[in-house]
Nucleic acid binder design. Structure first.
Lengths: 118, 118
DNA sequence: ACGAGTGTGTACTATTTAGTACACAACCTG
DNA sequence: CAGGTTGTGTACTAAATAGTACACACTCGT
């Protein structure tokens, strides 16, 4: 569970490969429109994780949560960045405030907002 | 109020320059440990905004909110990124949920959390 | 034994990022 | 009118980012 980006996608890919077809390094690479050797290097961490665009494609192909893959790559999704950038002070304060808040507290807020309690 | 990064810091710097001493391009540059010509280019947007580290120093020197300057430069503070990266799914959901929430709603949450209502 | 499929090694590259170093021209000031 | 101060123009650069292109070696089924 505490894998690096490379380890994580290799595990996922090989699992899918065993289960079916088309998840060899080549198969995945061709559907992503990139080079097999590059996938291989990413998986073994011979190089840094791919760009955000490529990570999104990988997430789609592997059926994984893009936010999780991006996080493993040390990146924050562009759409989240845009939300923060529009009201930087507000969101900065919120996020710093929630830094050490337990998961359930944050979840409660998510639910409250979703249910329109404002 | 809707200035670019360059315009914003030029305005701020020249204001400080008029009010006192040491806020010429050279003065600021030397206190930041960078080249005057670079400041000049940044202010006229001949080049992209500086790195996060440099923006933090600029914010300090100009007495501005770092999060605001970073936002004008299209960046999100590293410390906020780290908070999100530790719980990417949770924070992704929260932030997307709050995307269109009015300021006062977000502020209410900030206050609630600060006051320990969890 | 052979060809298809699999992963990997080697070498190279274009673009972006984040600046440096120094020279020049205009201005005002005593 | 010399000297400092100010902003800017020109030329260059090291490191990082995000890959490509192709060749090689192993294994497995027929």
């Amino acid at each position: 569970m505490n894998a690096t980006f490379g380890q994580f996608i290799r595990t996922k890919r090989t699992t899918l490969q065993q289960a079916g077809q088309g998840y060899s390094v080549r198969g995945l690479a061709s559907r992503l429109g990139i080079q097999p050797s590059y996938i291989s290097k990413v998986e073994r961490e011979e190089v840094a994780p791919p760009s955000e665009a490529t990570i999104h494609k990988i997430a789609q192909e592997l059926g994984e949560n893009p936010d999780v893959l991006l996080a493993l790559a040390g990146k924050v999704s562009e759409d989240l960045r845009q939300v923060i950038l529009k009201r930087p002070v507000l969101f900065a304060e919120l996020i710093r405030q929630l830094k050490d808040a337990p998961d359930h507290a944050v979840l409660r807020i998510v639910r409250e907002v979703r249910d329109g309690n404002w």
